[in-house]
Design a binder for these strands. Structure first.
Lengths: 171, 171
DNA sequence: TATTGTTATACTCTATAACTATA
DNA sequence: TATAGTTATAGAGTATAACAATA
């Protein structure tokens, strides 16, 4: 799983074959590490980065934000508190429902969100350059296919939703 | 990046194509989510799970553990404290160097480590069943290839090291 | 009554700095 | 002096439970 200490169900002896579970686990740690290092350059954590990412094209209530990020609403209160204190987001009272609060990016938050995305894409390009172009394309296509299949399977609508709704981790 | 809110450099209009960066980011969140949910069943965090994983075939000093997990030694003190309190690991004084402490799994910790790995593999199998078998194999092969290429590129030795040393996130 | 958001509280995880005990 | 590990401290991130305001 997380770690694949030699032994266990690692494939026989093939020098360059990892079990699917090992491969996916290691790949996920690799990508998360890249994400984390980039975020840390701006003093952001992964969850703060995800918050900014989610807000790039939304202006959700605290409640919706909790659902989008897969967190408890009280966790989101703290998350938004810290982001607001740093001038990355603002709370705006909802006019429709006086209980609700909308959260939206400040200009500063927006620029961080887009800069981060650009640099992450550059990192990934660099990583993928390790593969021949044909492999690169094939890998991207297979990953897309897997994500689409999984999302569909979860009852989530197709492409539109896939592109926007995937801030959540697991589901 | 983390999130791919519609717009930005998402590919033109292809209904089921994600940019490589989006695909990898989303996939990593998906896998981490699976990992996290499984860990939580045993009241473990991801880092505790990684700790157990690393110890499956090692008995490192606190210092080595810090390097393996990519954490500061003081963080490892706390991590091991909590794991020891729960009976998952034990500290054993080193006979070779009286300053050093070795950390090793208890039977309980070992059984959790292996059970977790098994269930994670089952989860991944289920996930991959969304793909036709040929895609499944191709994806695994490409991921392995990418990880091997990346590791080699980092100056890390080949298969042996790949299989054991990947507890670390980024590098 | 039900829902939205915050507060109070508690715990994990992480790092930096200072310290103890070896080497 | 340098290294191994712990402690003290501070802060982020998370959850549960209780609460206020509004629906």
């Amino acid at each position: 799983m997380t770690t694949r200490p030699a032994g266990t169900s690692a494939p026989p002896a093939g020098p360059e074959t990892l079990s699917p579970a090992d491969g996916l686990a290691q790949l996920s740690f690799l990508v998360q590490g890249i994400l984390e290092r980039r975020a840390r350059e701006h003093d952001l954590s992964i969850i703060q980065t995800r918050l900014l990412g989610v807000l790039r094209d939304r202006r959700p209530t605290m409640n919706e934000l909790a659902r989008l990020l897969g967190l408890d609403k009280s966790s989101v209160t703290g998350l938004v508190d810290r982001a607001e204190r740093r001038g990355l987001v603002v709370r705006v009272p909802s006019t429709a429902d006086r209980r609700a609060v909308l959260v939206s990016l400040t200009d500063h938050g927006r620029s961080l969100a887009f800069a981060g995305a650009a640099r992450f894409e550059a990192d990934i390009s660099l990583l993928l350059e390790r593969l021949p172009p044909s492999d690169r394309d094939a890998l991207s296509r297979l990953i897309s296919r897997l994500l689409v299949a999984h999302a569909t399977d979860q009852g989530i609508d197709l492409s539109a939703t896939i592109k926007t709704e995937n801030a959540q981790a697991g589901s």
